[in-house]
Design a protein around this nucleic acid. Structure first.
Lengths: 342, 342
DNA sequence: ATCACTTATTAAAGTGATTTAATAAGTCTA
DNA sequence: TAGACTTATTAAATCACTTTAATAAGTGAT
């Protein structure tokens, strides 16, 4: 619980930031109206923000009969964010501004090697050195389970287990750090990017090289589960003798030479049916490098054998990598907007 | 967004209420400490609350070396809540205080008859008449899908569809009203009653006379789904040719005379496995009039054929009716504590 | 019993947001 | 181009919580 004037100030500041970024630009009156905060208060905050270079006046409105109103816009370059995503084969990073515009991006060999955290630290340090003061938060994406900034489980990298990356780097760089699982970041990114309502239920489904998995967002929250096992859909029992993972594999061996993926339709349809009967999501997202549009129609038809069609989720295809990046950006932005001194 | 001094006041008041009810009793210093609100502010609020009869002094603490501190407790009788649950065969109601103590309860014939809402209105009106001013909020439980106080779907009672009960009665009685589906209320009740953490994922599973169903709470939120279809688990495909509903029924016909329920073990085990692979819940709750303890063990063993045992949820048995009632009470209490004039 | 000490409570000054009134900067009409 | 009107901004007064200082009420030792 935190109910005091200081928190009010923070609350107001971040709500102004959010509104300005969302609207693109606004007058004081518009902000006061939208945020239900009094005009003088808005005025005072904007004055300070303009002094700090956080916002800029972008001219006067046309008169609506009286004095023309000044219009303000957020200065996108005032704060930058850094997103780093660690993968087995390489490490990518992007630096972006509040509008989501990428200012710089690059690639490096994987830092996920035995030597532990040092390589990653050095990597971030170098990036920070050149962009110094402007970076206000860091988001790190990892291929493993994350519990509140602490790596809980990352297959193949046991030396990272139980390491509190978030805490470590927040101490080290003195800026907010957020760490998230790749799949969960992708879901957040998809949700953000497609401007969906906040309380949607989404499922991001991938088949991958090491077996299928899924990321879940329910009522706008990422689902991790009791033992971070949520999304291990290959274990879903589907046929008398096979689970989802086996049905995909088994089929693939039989149809190896045919080149057709039709054998996957029924297992996926059953999985979609199970999702619907259990959590009835709004959307199920597939990865663009794994599945074709035509396939989706077949799955829709397949699922409707198990569930009345009106309850089925919308099936869409999206760019996983892009969503992942957007997700990390979104996490960063939230921190930049919310968390702030003064 | 709401960031102004008025909301601060409300926030403080409800946090004091919450803390006092949670702790049972407290001194001003304890409240100030716990809530991170300054002593003078706490003092001012408590003074007013004591004047209003909302709290009472319950004596002085033993001295810890200096002046003895006054200890305050919430007056449970200050506000009462009314929970009404509508069923096909009858209508139950209870009146209870902030501590959850039932002050009065009763039963009436079902109001779910063709004549629409009038019977229910009259029923509540009579209860309100005798307990007049003390009832500060009403919770109504219904056997159907509810969307923000509006009945979305209630099988067999199409005349209620799209009727905004919440809005109607809030206008009529001028106190907060909350309407919730029976299963969802039961989950809230179980969660509340067992003092679980707020962000748990629970599943309440019932088999019922008209086929099985489930209620879901994920990360502390009730799950309704895109078309309020969440929890219709009988549609989950489980065997090559049968879904969960069919597996339960089919088995029952075969084993009709044997009296054994063992045929249910594998379907239920598979369902629990599906839950685990998808959302990895903390607990799955069964109804005490439908299943025995011994059965649970068999299901646990059965599920572990499909999923590594460490990821499986805890299986428990609970009193559905009681949880349902507690859930409605909890909803009422939340409204009483939060929503309040002044 | 008095004094030193501890803790609870009350009082006064300070900070921050709101409300209301006053002022400034425009537009439009006569 | 002056006056009426509209709308944006600034200023003053008010309300609410916090911080800090002062006071009250009790305990225990000398």
């Amino acid at each position: 619980m935190n109910a005091n004037p200081k928190s009010l100030k923070r609350e107001i500041l971040s709500s102004i930031r959010k509104a300005l970024l969302e609207l693109g630009n606004a007058t004081k009156a518009e902000l006061s109206d939208k945020l239900e905060i009094s005009f003088p208060t808005i005025s005072k905050f904007l004055l300070q923000m303009e002094k700090d270079g956080e916002i800029r006046s972008v001219g006067l409105d046309e008169s609506s009969g009286g004095r023309r109103a000044k219009r303000y816009a957020y200065n996108p370059e005032h704060m930058l964010g850094l997103a780093v995503f660690l993968e087995k084969t390489e490490t990518n990073y992007t630096i972006f501004n509040c509008m989501g515009e990428v200012k710089e991006q690059g690639k490096a060999p994987s830092v996920l090697v035995d030597s532990g955290i040092n390589l990653l630290t050095k990597f971030i340090e170098e990036i920070m050195a050149t962009n110094s003061s402007k970076i206000h938060s860091i988001a790190i994406g990892v291929p493993g389970s994350v519990d509140n900034g602490k790596i809980f489980y990352m297959p193949g990298y046991e030396e990272y287990h139980d390491f509190d990356i978030k805490g470590y780097y927040e101490d080290y760089f003195s800026i907010p750090v957020v760490v998230e699982n790749d799949m969960n970041a992708a879901i957040l990114g998809f949700n953000y990017n497609n401007r969906m309502k906040d309380d949607q239920s989404l499922i991001y489904l991938y088949f991958g090289h090491n077996g299928p998995g899924a990321g879940f967002m329910i009522n706008g929250d990422v689902v991790r589960g009791k033992t971070f096992f949520a999304g291990e859909v290959s274990f879903v029992p589907q046929y008398s003798e096979r689970n989802f993972g086996q049905a995909l594999e088994n089929g693939s061996r039989i149809n190896e030479e045919a080149g057709s993926k039709d054998y996957q339709i029924d297992p996926i349809s059953r999985l979609v049916a199970s999702f619907t009967a259990i959590i009835n999501p709004h959307t199920v997202i597939f990865c663009n490098d794994e599945i074709e549009k035509e396939m989706l129609n077949k799955i829709t038809i397949g699922s409707s054998k198990y569930i009345p069609a009106e309850h089925l989720p919308e099936l869409t295809i999206s760019d996983w990598k892009k969503d992942y990046l957007y997700g990390l950006q979104k996490l960063c932005l939230d921190f930049m907007i919310m968390n702030n001194d003064i």
